[in-house]
Amino acid sequence: MKTVFILNGPNLNTLGKREPDIYGGMTLASIEEDCKAAGAELGLAIDFRQSNHEGVLVDWIQEAGDKAAGIAINAGAYTHTSIAIHDAIRSIQPVPVVEVHLSNIHARETFRHLSRIAPVSVGMICGFGPLGYVLALRALAARF
């Protein structure tokens, strides 16, 4: 069974409470349950993690380079600022990475339009709320 790491960045631990008009009312724990159910359907083992710390995310990306068949990542605000996360993803290629965002980052503030992760990802899914995670898993499964 192939393993997919699902990595979540800063503030995603507050889903369900934080700006529900933008991010919806689901908690990260509920999204994890949905991902594990989708993973079971797709024959994938899911390793679901969240950290508010950039270096921890970099460590997990590097770990995934050795242990995972793919990564789905919602790097939160680090999407727009982190060259370190960009470089970590680049360093594990050809492991495919799908970038996920709950909201449509291109319909929000201008500073959110730039993704430092997109150039080293196989694709981006944004604007579909929690369904984006399941779509990312389906996209990764189609590549294996």
Rank of each mutant, 00 (worst) to 15 (best):
N8E: 04
H106S: 09
L140P: 14
A142F: 13
H113M: 01
E41H: 02
Y23M: 03
L137S: 08
F144M: 15
E33W: 00
S121V: 00
T3E: 15
H80F: 09
G129A: 09
I73G: 05
S51W: 03
E32V: 01
K36H: 05
T81Y: 12
F111A: 05
G129V: 12
I22K: 14
S30F: 00
K2I: 02
F5K: 06
D87T: 10
H106W: 09
I125T: 08
T3A: 08
N11Q: 04
F5Y: 15
S121W: 02
T27V: 04
I73V: 11
E109G: 07
S82C: 07
F5C: 01
R108G: 04
A118R: 11
C126K: 06
A40Q: 10
E54L: 02
A45C: 00
K67W: 03
L131F: 04
E32L: 01
L135K: 13
T27P: 04
L15I: 06
M124I: 12
I105K: 13
H53F: 05
T3M: 14
G43I: 01
Q50K: 07
R138H: 13
A139N: 13
Q93S: 14
A139F: 13
A118W: 00
S91M: 11
Q62E: 11
V98M: 15
R90S: 14
A29T: 06
S30E: 14
R108C: 05
S121G: 03
L44V: 02
R18Y: 08
A69E: 09
A64M: 00
A142I: 10
F128M: 12
L137I: 10
N8I: 02
D59H: 10
I71S: 03
G43W: 04
